[in-house]
């Protein structure tokens, strides 16, 4: 029962794919093909991310993380959040488990949001790809608009969310 409860969302998507396949075989098979491809991508990128997370959790003391990215880390924390997010590999859903460990280590909430923003838009491998496909003008403009943008969004988000809610999110991360 617990298994079904936890995997409910996944099982629903499987059933939907099954129904689509019955209605239109081509679209159903294509959906499975794309899912298979995404699964391979996950199998390739996600394990090292989680191993790095485990190592970070065990080896880096909370004090160190707090000093560099916690409350009062100022500009240093913001820059580090952008660099760490930009150096990342893998799809955006890989960023959230990293954020959870950052919370455990006492990283400031706005810096976590900046990290998520950087992971989503300023990843270096992606930027290089964009540069070659869409040209320097497009890619550089987007990068220059996005960096202040993700900082702005992070601060607006922090101001919109109450202290209690932030506390709750941090507590939730402890159990992850």
């Amino acid at each position: 029962m617990k298994f079904i409860e936890r995997y409910r969302f996944f099982l629903i998507t499987v059933v939907i794919t099954g129904i689509i396949t019955i209605i239109n075989r081509d679209i159903g098979l294509k959906a499975l093909g794309v899912a298979g491809y995404s699964f391979k991508e996950m199998a390739l990128v996600i394990p090292p991310i989680f191993v790095l997370l485990g190592l970070l959790d065990i080896w880096v003391p909370r004090e160190t993380m707090m000093k560099y990215m916690g409350e009062g880390s100022g500009i240093k924390g913001i820059v580090l959040a952008i660099i760490l997010g930009s150096a990342a590999a893998g799809p955006l859903y890989g960023a959230f488990p990293v954020a959870a460990v950052f919370m455990k280590k006492g990283v400031k909430f706005s810096n976590i949001l900046i990290f998520i923003g950087a992971w989503s838009t300023t990843k270096i491998p992606m930027f290089l790809f964009e540069l070659s496909a869409l040209g320097a003008r497009f890619a550089v403009t987007r990068l220059l608009v996005d960096i202040p943008g993700i900082i702005l969004i992070a601060y607006i988000l922090s101001s919109l969310i109450s202290k209690e809610q932030v506390m709750q999110i941090y507590q939730n991360a402890e159990s992850m």
């Binding site: 995997y7 409910r8 969302f9 298979g36």
Partner: peptide, 30 residues
């Protein structure tokens, strides 16, 4: 201990990952 933590964190979010992957498949097929 680090590897155990890595596994626990992964196992914890695996159901959502799998669901998202299937959803992406359906969406991109359409």
């Amino acid at each position: 201990k680090a590897l155990m933590k890595a596994w626990k964190a992964f196992e914890n979010i695996l159901p959502e990952f799998l669901g998202v992957i299937m959803l992406v498949g359906i969406l991109l097929a359409i």
